[in-house]
Amino acid sequence: MNAIDKAIQIVGGKSSLARAIGVTPQMVSQWTRAEKPKPIPVTRCVAIERATGGAVSRKDLRPNDWHLIWPEFEEAKNQDASDDAQPPVGTSSRKAKKK
Rank of each mutant, 00 (worst) to 15 (best):
M1A: 15
N2H: 07
A3H: 06
A3E: 08
I4M: 15
D5T: 04
K6S: 14
K6N: 13
K6E: 11
A7E: 04
A7C: 12
I8Y: 10
I8R: 03
I8L: 05
I8P: 08
I10F: 15
V11P: 13
G12S: 02
G13F: 08
G13A: 06
G13P: 11
G13R: 02
G13K: 00
K14D: 09
S15E: 09
S16K: 14
S16C: 10
L17D: 05
L17G: 09
A18P: 12
A18L: 07
A18C: 07
R19T: 10
A20M: 02
A20S: 14
I21V: 15
I21H: 03
I21Q: 00
V23I: 13
V23W: 05
T24I: 02
Q26L: 10
M27G: 09
V28Q: 01
V28T: 03
S29E: 11
S29I: 01
Q30W: 10
Q30H: 13
Q30M: 14
W31M: 14
W31N: 08
T32R: 13
T32E: 05
A34I: 11
A34F: 11
K36G: 10
K38Y: 06
P39A: 00
P39S: 01
P39Q: 00
P39E: 01
I40K: 01
P41W: 01
R44L: 10
V46S: 11
A47T: 00
A47M: 04
A47K: 03
I48G: 03
E49T: 09
R50S: 13
R50D: 13
T52F: 11
G53W: 05
G53H: 03
G53C: 12
G54V: 06
A55N: 05
A55M: 09
V56K: 01
S57C: 12
S57D: 06
R58L: 15
R58H: 09
K59D: 11
K59W: 09
D60M: 14
L61D: 07
R62W: 07
R62L: 14
P63D: 06
P63K: 00
N64M: 04
D65R: 01
D65G: 04
D65F: 06
L68M: 10
L68I: 04
I69P: 03
P71M: 01
P71A: 01
P71K: 00
P71I: 01
E72L: 04
E72V: 03
F73S: 01
F73I: 03
F73H: 11
E74T: 07
E75S: 05
A76E: 13
K77P: 00
K77C: 06
N78D: 06
N78G: 10
Q79P: 00
Q79S: 11
D80I: 12
A81H: 03
S82N: 06
S82L: 15
D84G: 13
D84K: 09
A85G: 04
A85W: 06
Q86P: 04
P87V: 00
P88E: 02
P88L: 01
P88S: 00
P88M: 00
V89A: 15
T91S: 11
S92Y: 02
S92N: 09
S93M: 08
A96R: 11
K99S: 15
